[in-house]
Computed example of a mutant assay.
Amino acid sequence: MRWQKAIRAYITKQNYPLGVLVAFSGEVEDLESYPAPVTETSKNLNPGLKGRDIRDAFAEPNYHLLLVANEFKTGFDQPLLCAMYVDKKLGGIQAVQTLSRLNRAYPGKDTTYILDFVNDAGEVLKAFKTYYETAELEATTDPEKVFDLRSKLDAADWYDDFEVELVAKVELDPKGTQAQLQAAIAPVADRLLKRYKAAQAAKAAAEAQKDESAAQAARDALEALILFKGDMGAFIRLYAFLSQIFGYGNTDIEKRFMFYKRLIPLLEFGRERDQVDLSKVTLTHHSLSNTGTLPLHLDQGDSQKLPPMNATGSGSLQEKQKALLEEIIQMVN
């Protein structure tokens, strides 16, 4: 939003015939920009939309610049795009997907142009070479890991087969209703959320009484719940990938896939902010310097192979304070 106001002011000052749109999801509250929360369809933000989808409006001749943060980095098929100005770190498949928004043919479009302020050219080339011509895995992904994860999740004893069957039955029933699905999944979610809240209360009480043993037990309970949710996510990703290749012939696996997909969004443990909002760490002064135009030759040198899905579900919680401190130091530097 602030970028858009600054760019619009500059365009007006220079009297350029350029139209600007800004795209983002949800609602943003920034009193420095506008007195009330706005969405991308707000009249004072994108007055020319008039209820239309931003993709359709951007195709019109009176719009030339589209400002985005995460929106439209992938899946945005607009052949008119011919230039991109990048001011955020991109890596791996994200770099390939984002920059490839320009790779669309259109009559009269004979040049594409990228001005990148932050990314290393070698890293961008490395990302593209991974998917250039042929993408290969450096090793295979073990299909048995799905069964290992299932056993690990079942052993946590937060649900039973009946509850899994109930959710799967509603999912597979063409006449199943939203109320039936909610009734099937809500008891499991409620059980987990109440356990998390109880562990939080136990931790606070133990710390207040300086009972380190009880406090550690409560912390272990909280970590176990967070890891349980993470393992369900790992199961979903692994099964979604491997089921395209292997025929498991095991309906219990498929039913758990449905069950976990419904359960995960309900488990908003804690709701506290997990990390420092690093967008508030801003430079008050900066300078720009031309580092040159760099040709990146995809047909030279070796390409990287993609890693398989290994050690799935073997994660552990990292020391949050140390990780965040490292991130802050890196950003400040």
Rank of each mutant, 00 (worst) to 15 (best):
Gly92Ile: 09
Gly301Val: 07
Gln304Lys: 10
Val188Lys: 00
Asp110Leu: 12
Phe241Gly: 04
Val20Met: 05
Tyr260Pro: 01
Ile7Gln: 04
Gly313Lys: 02
Ala135Trp: 01
Leu102Pro: 03
Asn250Lys: 12
Ala202Leu: 11
Val167Ser: 02
Thr41Leu: 05
Thr12Tyr: 09
Glu212Arg: 14
Trp3Pro: 01
Leu65Ser: 02
Lys13Cys: 06
Phe117Arg: 10
Phe72Ala: 01
Pro187Arg: 11
Leu81Thr: 02
Leu242Asp: 02
Ser151Asn: 13
Lys5Asp: 08
Glu133Lys: 15
Trp158Glu: 11
Arg104Trp: 02
Tyr85Asn: 11
Lys261Trp: 04
Pro37Phe: 05
Asp120Trp: 05
Pro187Gly: 12
Ser25Asp: 05
Ala202Asn: 14
Ala83Phe: 06
Pro17Cys: 09
Ser151Met: 12
Leu66Lys: 03
Ile253Asp: 03
Phe257Thr: 00
Asp173Asn: 14
Ile245Asn: 08
Ser316Trp: 07
Leu49Trp: 05
Asp87Ser: 11
Pro107Leu: 06
Asp252His: 10
Glu163Lys: 07
Leu45Tyr: 14
Leu125Gly: 04
Glu60Asn: 10
Leu267Phe: 09
Gly313Tyr: 00
Glu138Cys: 14
Ala23Gln: 09
Arg191Tyr: 11
Ile11Asp: 04
Phe162Lys: 13
Val68Thr: 11
Gln4Glu: 13
Phe147Cys: 07
Leu66His: 01
Asp160Tyr: 09
His285Thr: 08
Leu294Val: 15
Ala184Val: 04
Pro61Trp: 01
Gly313His: 01
Val164Gly: 00
Ala208Gly: 13
Tyr260Arg: 02
Gly233Tyr: 02
Ala199Lys: 00
Gln200Pro: 01
Asn103His: 13
Val170Ile: 10
Ile329His: 02
Ser303Asp: 09
Phe76Arg: 02
Thr130Asp: 08
Asp277Trp: 04
Leu181Phe: 06
Glu326Trp: 09
Gly48Arg: 10
Ile11Met: 07
Ala206Met: 10
Tyr63Ala: 03
Ala201Cys: 03
Leu238Pro: 00
Arg150Met: 07
Gly230Asp: 07
Gln330Cys: 06
